[in-house]
């Protein structure tokens, strides 16, 4: 279980997160929606401590970090319990697909090279890249790179995988293959938090939808409730603007 309490974050005078409380049950797939600048990516990055929250508490599987005065060791432990899939993939450029997945297993999890290689090859097979083990990121398409990124995150067997707009940098025709992989692993009961603009996907895959705006959670609930009968005016506006049917009635 993941519990965020009163997470706040400011960049200078700009308060991006204004005390976020969020509980994510084990096995839940959470979709975070919201307009640009609403703080959803910052919130996600705070969970992995790529962004230092100004205040609050992050608790993952009984392990709690107080963001006011976190110990270096605690941050390190927290990062080992989470894994991130980045918008820009961020694969290690000087390593092959296989080495990218192996890296964390060997360096952090201390597996032997043989064990790591076997597991990594299996995972790449699972995301449909069994034939690309020795390709460098620069030799892969965006969709393939992102699937390697997902395999890299899966390999660490984290408590939660954080997806930061995983398909936003992709060509439209490559979005499908990445979403299919995410959908597949969602079915395996891995806890996931996804920041996304793919409404159809969120509606389809998530079982907990969070709508953020202006650094606060405006509304959260099951996808059915959020997408079909949102209570807050701001949520209705947002959904009306991005739902294709209503948006382009030329």
């Amino acid at each position: 279980m993941i519990k965020l309490s009163r997470i706040s974050k400011s960049f200078g005078r700009n308060e991006v997160l204004k005390g976020i409380d969020l509980t994510v049950e084990k096995g839940e797939v959470v979709a975070i929606l919201g307009p640009s600048g609403s703080g959803k990516t910052t919130l996600l990055r705070c969970i992995n401590y790529l962004e230092k929250p100004s205040d609050g508490e992050i608790s993952i599987a009984e392990f709690t970090v107080n963001c006011r005065k976190p110990a270096k060791k605690d941050i390190h432990t927290l990062r080992q319990k989470t894994a991130m899939v980045f918008q820009q993939y961020n694969l290690f450029r000087h390593k092959t697909a296989l080495e990218n997945v192996m890296e964390g297993l060997v360096v952090v999890k201390k597996l032997t090279k043989e064990e790591a290689r076997k597991l990594s090859a299996e995972l790449l097979e699972k995301v449909g890249l069994g034939t690309k083990l020795d390709a460098y990121p620069s030799q892969l398409s965006g969709g393939q790179q992102q699937r390697v990124g997902i395999a890299r995150a899966l390999a660490l067997n984290p408590e939660v995988i954080l997806f930061d707009e995983p398909t936003s940098a992709l060509d439209p025709e490559l979005v499908g293959e990445v979403l299919a992989v995410i959908r597949k692993i969602a079915k395996e009961g891995i806890t996931m938090i996804i920041v996304t603009h793919e409404m159809g996907f969120a509606q389809d895959v998530a079982n907990h939808v969070v709508f953020m705006d202006g650094g606060v959670i405006v509304e959260e609930g099951s996808p059915k409730v959020i997408f079909q009968s949102p209570k807050e005016e701001r949520t209705k506006q947002f959904l009306a603007r991005i739902t294709p049917e209503s948006a382009y009635s030329i």
Binding site: Q88, N90, F92, L156
Partner: peptide, 23 residues
């Protein structure tokens, strides 16, 4: 070196020293 490389290394659980040395 893109900043994302360091972030990715941190996200897989490496310490800053490991990230610098290996990535």
């Amino acid at each position: 070196v893109d900043r994302g490389q360091l972030e990715a290394a941190h996200s897989v659980g490496m310490t800053t020293f490991q990230a610098l040395r290996r990535i």
